[in-house]
């Protein structure tokens, strides 16, 4: 080899792209889509990671599989849910806190009405979210709506805060065992679903990773101490108690996913995160709500 170190970097094409960044559709690397179909359901995972068979029924999880270093990921963390996990945890504390806050907020019945509960009935309310609100001109998740409706009652419950998620846990628990059923086949939710699907596969950050890098391309592989699982059937247990001592909403989890993969996190309740929430909720269709819940 020659004595001088010389590198011919073809940087000009990259420069030209930076300068032309005002083009309408900005180029982004994408992780190729898998077949999501027009009416996604949790069971569609059978043609993706094909682990659905191991986590579709909480009561029939194989303990050996769940404790296997190489196979535990195929159970999609469902062994953290009852009946396999019957411990008391921080999610139950949150439920109690949420009950107390709910009593204060709903003293005149307006809070429940604002959330869309008919005659104050909380059973099934979780399943109405995310939903498009004509009055707000946008799609909202339950936690965004809790913030909105609490504000009307003079209580500040910032989306993503412990108390907001605690109220969400309290409300969500009324839907325990009810299968998620969000219709993304038409209207604003379809648009939100399609946007979320695209975001999930869009590469970003210094790593040039998308959500799908971990949950589609290297799903089931070891990333040192972690093994990414399928993105199907995952929203059924949110908000959840993380055993590192933190009550997290789904959007708060997204900020952690982003950081872990070298991507700049976005604001809680942003349109982007809400679209990903809609996308992932559709991928949980048919899978029952489980709350309070606990995850590592």
């Amino acid at each position: 080899m020659k004595t001088s170190a010389r590198i011919a970097a073809i940087a000009l094409s990259g420069l030209a792209l930076s300068l032309g960044a005002h083009a309408e559709e900005v180029y982004r690397d994408m992780t190729p889509y898998i077949d999501y179909g027009s009416k996604p359901r949790a069971s569609d995972d059978a043609r993706h990671t094909n682990t659905y068979q191991y986590w579709k029924d909480n009561a029939r999880i194989d303990p050996q599989r769940a404790s296997s270093a190489t196979q535990f990921w195929t159970v999609n963390w469902k062994y953290k849910d009852p009946p396999f996990n019957d411990t008391l945890h921080g999610g139950h504390d949150a439920q109690d806190r949420g009950a107390e806050l709910y009593r204060q907020l709903n003293a005149d019945g307006r809070f429940a009405a604002c959330l869309g509960a008919k005659k104050g009935e909380l059973k099934g309310l979780r399943l109405q979210y995310p939903q498009y609100r004509k009055d707000m001109q946008r799609v909202v998740g339950l936690e965004a709506m809790i913030e909105h409706c609490a504000d009307k009652q003079g209580m500040k419950l910032v989306n993503g805060s412990y108390d907001n998620s605690a109220v969400s846990v309290y409300i969500t628990a009324f839907s325990n065992g009810m299968p998620i059923r969000i219709d993304v086949s038409k209207g604003p939710l379809k648009e939100s679903f399609e946007n979320g699907k695209k975001l999930f596969h869009t590469k970003a950050g210094w790593t040039n990773f998308s959500c799908a890098t971990c949950h589609v391309s290297v799903v089931g592989k070891n990333l040192r101490g972690q093994t990414p699982t399928t993105h199907y059937g995952d929203v059924a247990h949110w908000p959840t108690w993380r055993s590192k001592d933190e009550l997290q909403s789904l959007h708060v989890r997204f900020t952690e996913c982003n950081r872990n993969s070298g991507v700049q996190p976005l604001q809680i309740g942003s349109k982007e995160y809400t679209d990903i929430e809609v996308f992932m909720t559709a991928l949980s269709n048919g899978y029952p709500v489980v709350n309070p819940s606990q995850r590592d």
């Binding site: 020659k2 011919a8 590469k203």
Partner: peptide, 27 residues
């Protein structure tokens, strides 16, 4: 992390195209 493209709809920064580089000389 804001120095690299984000998932924000407002973000107009593209993914940088693949760069072909040539190493010459001793390592």
């Amino acid at each position: 992390l804001s120095k690299w493209p984000t998932l924000s709809y407002e973000d107009k920064r593209p993914t940088k195209k693949a760069e072909k580089v040539e190493l010459q000389g001793p390592l």
